[in-house]
Design a protein around this nucleic acid. Structure first.
Length: 399
DNA sequence: GAGGTAATAT
DNA sequence: AATATTACCT
């Protein structure tokens, strides 16, 4: 993966033809008929490509540009040929099998052409921003490797369940995925069975820690930024003059990028672990952030983050039981509902040692009505009540 | 340093 | 409005 050659720079003026295209043109035979068909073939391919990318023009503006430019250049050339031959433009789109046009292409096109068939994979393009991030991260955290990947896949799968959290931030739809890993989005469907049967197998959860500010154009999303505190602090000390030429980044963004930590996104899975740990430790009132964090075994998770989450958790659990006037729990919103799934689907077993609780009873629930809440027993109800309970007789949430 | 809580930012 | 981060205190 060489660095992008200057030829690929985005100067798209007609005077500036990407070298590869130039090459392509120069390698064309002089016999005009042959040349024309080659040209047209190429153009057809490019246009084909163009159509496909069009769906993603918002994400791939530059690719669109490049492609567009290439097309016009080639068309120009083609017309020249035509005028020489005095032929009607009939063969504009004759599809010819061509052996190795793409090879001469510039990298960008090359990639796109190759993906013609399963062009969806080009979707990964929008990952590129974070890919770098991941690479950097990879170097740093190579330890967990396989296990980690598993877990990260988990994240990808679970993220969709947490739409509300990213909603304000700027849920760009696919952005969240990109932040996790470069694994193709197609991995989305994965068998819950493994997780279901064994928690211990994949006990170590890891969070990506992408510190480099330059790459973080997409700052919101659910990018799990583990960021050990120090690494982040280190960041803050570094001057904010990162790539001044980055046009997208409003100065504000870059500033905050440098100064403020990325928001930890508590994915359902993460929260599940949290609650799990909480229960093992005897409830939210007695568990300490450090304990919880250690129990959670989530790589990159900081004490502060746990502390913060715990604070919120306590707040919620305090609020919920007291108000049984109305539907107390549901108010707390869609964010936590997904936990339900994890509790019952993934493992009723590991959650609470002895007492399997049916979500249903809690749903209608409402305990005694007093504000009293005990740690040990309540811990369980806490975990249930915190997230909302939709009155589904099936006990499952549809999402 | 760790925990708890309030203030603040997103 | 909710959630996460940071600050401040013990």
């Amino acid at each position: 993966m060489g660095s992008v050659p200057a030829e690929l720079s985005l100067d798209l003026r007609p005077t500036f033809v990407p070298k590869t295209i130039t090459d392509f043109l120069s390698t064309l035979p002089n016999s005009s008929s042959n040349k024309l068909s080659l040209l047209n073939d190429f153009i057809a391919r490019l246009e084909d490509e163009f159509k496909k990318i069009d769906a993603f023009k918002r994400e791939l503006p530059l690719s669109m540009h490049l492609l567009n430019d290439a097309i016009s250049i080639l068309k120009e050339e083609s017309e020249k040929c035509l005028s020489h031959k005095f032929q009607p433009v009939l063969e504009e789109f004759i599809p010819l099998k061509k052996e190795c046009d793409e090879e001469e292409e510039n990298n960008n096109k090359d990639k796109e052409c190759r993906d013609k068939k399963n062009w969806m994979s080009s979707v990964q393009l929008w990952n590129t921003t974070t890919t770098t991030t991941n690479n950097v991260y990879d170097q740093k955290h190579h330890k967990l490797d396989n296990k980690k990947n598993e877990d990260e896949r988990q994240y990808m799968v679970e993220d969709p369940f947490q739409p509300s959290s990213s909603r304000n931030g700027g849920g760009r739809g696919f952005l969240p995925f990109s932040s996790y890993t470069s694994i193709p989005v197609t991995t989305m469907v994965l068998p819950p069975t493994k997780e279901e049967k064994e928690d211990t197998a994949m006990n170590k959860l890891s969070l990506l820690t992408p510190p480099p500010p330059v790459v973080k154009i997409l700052r919101e999303g659910c990018s799990s930024s583990g960021s050990r505190t120090n690494s982040n602090r280190a960041l803050s000390s570094s001057p904010p003059m990162v790539q001044p030429s980055l046009r997208t980044g409003s100065l504000q963004q870059q500033q905050q990028l440098a100064s403020r930590k990325q928001r930890r996104c508590w994915s359902p899975e993460l929260h599940r672990r949290f609650v799990n740990a909480l229960q093992k430790l005897g409830g939210s009132q007695v568990a300490t952030p450090k304990q919880i964090r250690e129990l959670m075994q989530v790589d990159g998770l900081t004490n502060d983050e746990v502390k913060s989450h715990l604070q919120k958790y306590r707040l919620h659990t305090r609020r919920v039981p007291s108000s049984n006037t109305k539907q107390p729990v549901v108010v707390l919103g869609g964010l936590w509902m997904s936990q339900d799934q994890y509790n019952d689907s993934s493992k009723g077993s590991s959650s609470v040692s002895g007492s399997p609780q049916s979500p249903l009873q809690l749903a209608t629930g409402s305990r005694g009505g007093t504000d009293s809440l005990e740690d040990d027993e309540d811990a369980k109800s806490e975990s249930h009540s915190w997230k909302i309970h939709i009155h589904n007789n099936t006990g499952k949430v549809g999402v």
